[in-house]
Design a protein around this nucleic acid. Structure first.
Lengths: 218, 218
DNA sequence: TTGACATGTCACCATCAGGTGACATATTAA
DNA sequence: TTAATATGTCACCTGATGGTGACATGTCAA
């Protein structure tokens, strides 16, 4: 009867971690539960308690090793406008916005993470959040270095801009999973997102024209 | 024993509707359930089935009569920059952004609605969504009329801008409920939001400088 | 007064959740 | 070989959920 599954702790742990990813992608965070995870992994839920100490432990293990968010190297990959080019920083920010948006649209798990971070706050969302935040900070630091700007002042001037555009991309991409139209924009079409990118680029340029140097405050 | 509660259908229905609001505000959407609502209203869940046809019916009744979102009159209340003033439209959009953001920060239920619309899709979020969307559309139409612009072209030029800024405000306000900092911005302080409003105003101006008239396409 | 209906109460059901204890068996060290 | 331990299976518990049927009693028209 019982097929005497192979005894391999590491393989079982790996299957459980993969189940976290698969469940989030296919059914969303709402479906994440001890029972569902065990079933999906084809194992017994008691092993989750034994190997990970419970659901929270499994989820934070996933957060640490999971590949659910972009890497700084990818978001800043060449070719990328540099400090020697005209409007280098503005165009650079535009490219980053576009890459960020493209990544989101291509990664269902990332969108689920964003949606769930807003709606709920628990051990997993906190762990995921901290990974995301540290990557963003790293990206900003490297960008400041690229343009030879003081990090503090760079954050002060570009921070609000990134906050607005990043927030917009997150919201629209997450929303676009299930709702096609927002303010007349088709969130599920390439054309809709190109429109958004053009607007974002113009908005960036608008801020840049006013102030962007290291000695801008207001 | 049983206190023989007064028999008043309308009062019971009203208590149930108030429970929806109270539960969302105090415990979030996750707590919305037949049992929790009945308990909160101090009544029996079977009455929800009888009077509203079930949870979905109660929730959509709330969506129709609930006061969970801004009214167009409020968001466009005077004083508001008009077509005769310099940069009238740009400044008008800036004011609307600020009012939208201020409303969100002051209304916990609205933030819950936004968060839940992103994370889940069900009868209630669809009903709430449709109310929100229709108010936005109405606001845009009245704005076009105020500046004597063709609605279609107005939507094409201002639509992406509103989409980006509205999305950003929604995301940041919803996120700010539980997470204080985003990209160095304090989402729970007036100062943080003033910074965002200044950036938004500059971004709007940047788009306006390039194209804003009725005959702009790209 | 009587009978129909509206309002409200209660008990119960199946299902799912997270969680735990008891057990079977493979592996490995003594 | 034997005994301890690691791995995995199974049955069961408590509690909450959505949902329904049976019942008690107030209200109101005939």
């Amino acid at each position: 009867m019982s097929e005497a599954r192979e005894r391999d702790r590491e393989a079982t742990k790996a299957r459980l971690l993969q189940s976290v990813e698969a469940l989030i992608r296919e059914e969303g965070f709402g479906a994440l539960g001890i029972n569902a995870l065990a079933k999906r992994a084809g194992t017994d839920k008691v092993l989750i308690y034994r190997y990970f100490g419970g659901l929270a432990g499994l989820l934070s293990a996933y957060a640490e090793e999971g590949d659910f968010w972009w890497h700084v190297d990818d978001i800043l990959a060449e070719p990328l406008p540099g400090p020697d080019e005209a409007d280098g920083l503005s165009r650079c920010l535009g490219v980053i916005f576009a890459r960020h948006a493209a990544f989101l649209r291509a990664h269902a798990v990332a969108l689920e993470v964003i949606a769930w971070e807003i709606a709920q706050r628990n051990e997993l969302t906190e762990a995921l959040e901290s990974v995301r935040e540290s990557r963003s900070q790293e990206m900003m630091r490297r960008l400041a270095a690229r343009f030879d700007l003081d990090v503090r002042e760079f954050l002060a001037s570009v921070g609000p801009l990134f906050a607005l555009l990043g927030a917009a991309a997150n919201y629209l991409a997450a929303r676009g999973r299930r709702l096609r139209i927002f303010n007349g924009i088709d969130l599920q079409s390439d054309e809709g997102w190109r429109t958004l990118e053009r607007s974002a680029a113009r908005m960036i340029a608008g801020v840049a024209s006013g102030a962007f140097s290291t000695y801008s405050t207001q």
